[in-house]
């Protein structure tokens, strides 16, 4: 196995790693999927997936406890890199959740869905967490190849990113307030056919 052909899934003790790695294996072709907490393996990988579930302060603590911060920052800058859910949120500067600083790869912050705006025009209340399948409006990007604009993906989150630079946005969703995806806020590994197609596009993406 050549390290250059591996897809590293970063293991910092948080999140549904097995689901992510199994979905990637399903679409990886000849490439090898490794779940790893080793900065050297991340550095040698061809592309990197940064999943995340749970509370942002715990995620940041666990990342640092494993000495993975530098490897994640380096990979986010120079490799095909896919952040998922909290793995997306951690790429920004600061989160409302626990009021912690994040990795600061992109300018912008992570906000909680505002209680006052969580109603439909009909008056129906919108529940938080935003849980379930919602429509994503696409901005042009190789990740969307073969996926119809407006396709539904599986979300489960109470916080969302507000990027300072609109040019970063690859997709938009609306739930009480409009929010955006730079990496992906939804879970491609749990989004059936379209989710697997997105992961396949990531595996084949050459930025």
């Amino acid at each position: 196995m050549s390290a250059g052909q591996t897809i590293a899934v970063i293991d910092y003790g948080m999140g549904n790693l097995r689901s992510v790695s199994k979905a990637l294996e399903h679409v990886a072709g000849g490439k090898t999927v490794v779940v790893t907490a080793d900065p050297a393996v991340v550095a040698a990988a061809e592309r990197v997936v940064f999943p995340g579930q749970g509370a942002m302060p715990d995620c940041m603590n666990e990342l640092d406890a494993r000495g993975l911060r530098a490897a994640v920052l380096a990979a986010a800058k120079d490799k095909p890199f896919l952040g998922i859910c909290v793995g997306e949120q951690m790429l920004f500067e600061r989160s409302d959740e626990g009021d912690v600083p994040a990795l600061g790869v992109f300018p912008g912050n992570v906000k909680r869905f505002p209680d006052a705006k969580m109603y439909l025009p009909t008056g129906e209340r919108l529940k938080v967490p935003h849980m379930g399948w919602n429509e994503v409006r696409q901005s042009p990007h190789a990740l969307w190849n073969g996926i119809a604009d407006g396709s539904r993906f599986y979300f489960v989150h109470s916080y969302f990113v507000e990027p300072a630079d609109p040019a970063l946005v690859t997709g938009r969703c609306e739930y009480g307030v409009p929010f955006t995806c730079v990496a992906v806020q939804f879970h491609p590994e749990k989004s059936a056919r379209d989710g697997l197609q997105l992961l396949k596009n990531f595996v084949e993406w050459h930025p």
Binding site: R18, S19, K22, A23, H26, Y154, V156, H187, E189
Partner: peptide
């Protein structure tokens, strides 16, 4: 475990 390998929904 077996389900997570084959069924890609929550």
């Amino acid at each position: 475990e077996a389900c997570a390998e084959q069924v890609f929904i929550p």
